[in-house]
Structures are given as C-alpha cells and as structure tokens.
Computed example of a mutant assay.
Amino acid sequence: MPTSVRLPPETEKRLDRLAASTGRTKAFYVRELIVSGLDRLEWEYSVAQNAHDIRAGRRRTIPSDEVRRTLGLEG
C-alpha cells in the first residue's frame, strides 16, 4: 500500500545517508523501521492496557508468595 510520510529535514538527511552508504533504497529502510517499530509499539500498548486492566480490577494478579508456594520456592 503506498503511503506518504513527512519527515523532519534532519531525519530525511540521515535516511538519505544510510541509503547511499548501503546501496539500499529509502523505502526499504522506512519499511524496516515500520515493521520493527510496530512490534515494539504493539508490545508497549499491550503492557499499558494490561496495567490499566489490573488497576480497574478486570485482570487477576497472583501474589508473589502464592507463586513461590506453587513453584515450591519457599524457604
């Protein structure tokens, strides 16, 4: 899907330098950044949503002493 992105001039220059020094296209690096950045963003937002759900009482947590007892890590 064609997409247009407006970049700050310094970011554009950095992307130009990277593409020129590696022989890859700027589009290649933009795709790479989106794919890897999307993984990170999805993880970060899921962590934030889980924390929100815990605070709102919609998600059950397990006390650490119960975890230690269940795993036989007491003592």
Rank of each mutant, 00 (worst) to 15 (best):
V47E: 10
T25D: 04
E66W: 04
L73E: 15
V30D: 02
S21K: 13
R58T: 01
S64L: 15
R60L: 14
P2F: 03
R17Q: 14
A56K: 12
R40I: 03
Y29W: 08
I54E: 04
G23S: 07
T70I: 06
R31H: 12
D53W: 01
S64V: 15
Y29Q: 03
P2K: 06
A27M: 00
G23C: 09
T3M: 03
T3E: 03
V5I: 15
E42W: 03
R6H: 05
V5A: 12
R69V: 14
R31L: 13
L41D: 09
E44F: 04
P63H: 08
I62L: 14
T11D: 01
Q49D: 05
G37L: 07
R59W: 11
R55D: 13
L38N: 01
L73H: 11
V47W: 00
G23R: 01
R6V: 14
T70W: 06
I34Q: 05
R40S: 03
E32Q: 09
V35K: 15
I62N: 01
D53V: 04
V35D: 09
R68M: 15
Q49I: 06
Q49N: 03
S46H: 12
D65I: 10
A56N: 05
R68W: 12
L18N: 05
E74S: 10
M1S: 08
V47F: 00
R31Q: 12
I34Y: 04
D53N: 07
A56L: 07
R55I: 11
R69M: 14
K26D: 02
T22I: 07
T11K: 02
E32T: 03
L73D: 12
A19E: 10
P63T: 05
E10S: 02
A19H: 07
G75R: 13
R31N: 11
D39H: 11
I62C: 06
L18Q: 06
P2D: 06
R17D: 15
P8C: 02
K26N: 01
R60H: 08
R6K: 08
E74V: 11
T61S: 12
N50R: 15
R24A: 12
E44G: 03
T3A: 05
E66Q: 13
V35P: 03
E74Q: 08
A27F: 00
L33G: 15
D16W: 01
R55Q: 13
T25V: 05
L71N: 08
R60E: 15
L7D: 01
L15Q: 02
L7N: 01
G57R: 02
I34L: 12
R55T: 11
L71S: 07
G23L: 12
Y29F: 10
T61E: 09
D39Q: 07
P63D: 14
T11P: 00
T3H: 05
T11R: 02
T3N: 05
I34H: 04
M1A: 09
E12A: 13
A51G: 02
D16N: 05
G23A: 09
R14L: 10
L7M: 04
